[in-house]
């Protein structure tokens, strides 16, 4: 079942890339997508049908602009630190705890953290994430988790769990 869904998604992706219904393109697409499905289908998420539920898609659409806003903020922050003559940085690696349980949610959390203000994921270890922080505000696990991860977890929990 999950291989079929993976095949359909990958084939839609191929159609968007070529943007033509030429028979040659379709045949080449089927071959390539089939190969990709056989090789990578096993790594796909366990229950893909879950992500077609409307309320998950709704929260995902809400999540995108929030994420982009944090990303712009992150860039202005890093640009300020790079251009300031005294280079105001106080880096360090802290440990945070996440409430998310599934793998895909953790991956999205790690990616979101990497692209937002001054923080970057080094490693995921069970429920704990190691974060490189360009301006350490708190070395404690609970406080750091609240500052770094809580505003993403609120949305990611609704989307992926």
């Amino acid at each position: 079942m999950r291989y079929v869904i993976y095949f359909i998604i990958a084939f839609c992706f191929w159609l968007l890339l070529t943007l033509s219904v030429n028979i040659d393109h379709l045949i080449a697409g089927v071959i390539v997508v089939l190969l990709a499905t056989i090789i990578f289908g096993g790594y796909f998420t366990d229950r893909p049908a879950k992500f077609l539920q409307p309320h998950r898609i709704f929260w995902f659409v809400i999540y995108i602009p929030i994420f982009l806003w944090y990303m712009v903020k992150a860039n202005i922050d890093v640009a300020y630190r790079a251009l300031h003559p005294e280079r105001p940085i106080k880096p360090g690696i802290v440990k945070i705890k996440t409430v998310l349980k599934t793998n895909i949610a953790k991956v999205f959390l790690a990616n979101s953290i990497t692209l937002t203000p001054g923080t970057m994921t080094c490693e995921i270890d069970g429920d704990y994430l190691y974060i490189h922080w360009i301006w350490v505000q708190s070395p404690e696990v609970d406080k750091a988790s609240k500052i770094i991860a809580s505003h993403f977890e609120r949305y990611l929990r609704r989307i992926f769990e």
Binding site: P91, G92, I93, V94, K95, E123, Y130, V136, P139
Partner: peptide
């Protein structure tokens, strides 16, 4: 890491 780093929990 740079000498101004204040914490390395991972290490």
């Amino acid at each position: 890491m740079w000498k101004g780093t204040i914490l390395d929990q991972y290490g």
